[in-house]
Design a protein around this nucleic acid. Sequence first.
RNA 1: CGGGGCGUAGCGCAGUCUGGCAGCGCGCCUGCUUUGGGAGCAGGAUGUCGCAGGUUCAAAUCCUGCCGCCCCGACCA
Length: 575
Amino acid sequence: MRYSEMFLPTTKEIPSDAEIASHQLMLRAGMIRKLAGGIYSYLPLGYRVIRKVENIVREEMNRAGAQELFLPAVQPAELWIESGRWNMYGKELLRFKDRHNRDYCIGPTHEEVITALVRDEIQTYRQLPKNLYQIQTKFRDEIRPRFGIMRSREFNMKDAYSFDADEEGAEKSYRKMFEAYNRIFKRCGLTFRPVEADSGNIGGSFSHEFMVTADSGEDAMVHCTSCDYAANLEKAEISRPDERADQAINFAPMEKVHTPDVRTIEEVCAFLDVAPQDVVKTMIFMCDGKPVAVLVRGNEDINEAKLRNYLGCDLLELAMDDTILEVTGSPWGFAGPLGIKSRIIADYSLSGMKNFVVGANREDHHIKNCNMGRDFEIRDYADLRIVREGDVCPRCGKELRIVRGIEVGHVFKLGVKYSKAMNATFLDRDGKEKYMIMGCYGIGIGRTVAACVEQSRDEDGIIWPMSIAPFQVIITPVNINDENLSNTAEELYGSLIEDGVEVILDDRNERAGVKFKDADLTGIPIRITIGAKSLAEGKVEVRFRKSGEVEKIPLETVRDFIAKTIMDQLTISCS
RNA sequence: CGGGGCGUAGCGCAGUCUGGCAGCGCGCCUGCUUUGGGAGCAGGAUGUCGCAGGUUCAAAUCCUGCCGCCCCGACCA
């Protein structure tokens, strides 16, 4: 490719509506342009990188025995009604009608389509297992798209679906995908970590997210400083504490106090002069339409994902004011366990608490010196709170650390959720009809590219690893009007193309500085500078984007040097 | 959905309060000089001031409505 002919609009100035580095750099490097909120065009340079990642994904999926197919982006409502998700999915699902007034959506994911396809074509265990994948444009009408292609509404995703006859098979399929994902992200040059993830309301299922560590990441994850435990913050467990109530402290007499308009933990603490950890927070949730009171220590927060799993409910939300009034007999802000008209469950953090403050279930009143055992009983104890920095590892007891990350991939054991809803069955060896056991496995292609930029850049621009760089080499003749330089550049360009190197020749009539800046910004791993001084010695300069190191290489050996360097770097990112 | 901010040349912005010739920097075009880290000089082109309506002799500027974009929040008792 000749730079002079390429559609590659780089910019000096930072676009004002880009917040994070990857978004800014991808715009500046002429990789992407925004068309509408959360909807982007991929320009040639950006698309080359996308294709590189897609191909790594393809190679590894194929290696793992998955087969590529291509499903429709537009899907009829019937399928979604069948799976029950037409009503469940909410506003994220982009719906529309065709000319016959029939309902359709643009697929945010393809479980329905693939399940319908496989159910119609597979009848016997002899045809299982199968693992099918595609790389497709998805659309999710996000509440708030942001960070460029990191969280966009339209995005490119690899999604794979496995179908197995039994649990062992499903387990094997899952492991294969897990391994493939490790290879994929390693080959993309990413620093990442598979973490245990919340499996939603499909109890007992298994799920891992592949998180690229980055401070700008939207997700929080927890990892142990000692063992290899790592989990999404939503999922991260807290061990059941020892029953170690402080015997030295005696129960004080319970006392109802007037607390006018004192509602939040902060207000209660200030008003009663106590610490948040001496208060019990009572929150009323609606769990599939039924109210539940959840108790947690005042300085902790409820983890809704854990609560949902514990209760095994589909729909969980905080109760509205009228429900609170009904259950507690008071407006919000004064709820407590005493005399409440609902089921009560408590987080482990209540363990050992004595003489604490609770709401009195009466407007403008709280209760001091409340105690479990004496004043009320807790039957349901569970791990319901969010992990904090300083909590200990549920596996080994050492310290946990919280870091931020970008979720680039997700592997998930679905079980029979969709095969059951959509009647995807097969005839097993024993002559019985059974539901196929499914798994699904996603990778955000664009997000992987953005994550890579987040992790690999400097003040001059992007630093691509060889494996996904848009070009492997850029040839920069310092002055194109010097025939000696431009002829040498042209010749070298021709031979590198012959060698199969992905090379761009910067044949623009620009000053050297401009070319260097663009080469750095676009992040091409190897720059071959052709200048008068070195050329007089029969040499060219090979500069590495990542290290900034320059090597002078004799013109006659530069082909071999480049070929070897590229091979080395690709091999390193493979292993 | 709630709150805040913004919308003026391809990009980044000033001008809006206090109505009166449409501006600056970068980029772009032409010429000359220059040519190893975003060149210099000279000349030049480029606007539905987001859209619609209203007030006014006169609107980028004031008023009303709408649209788009960005940021924060979305119930944690």
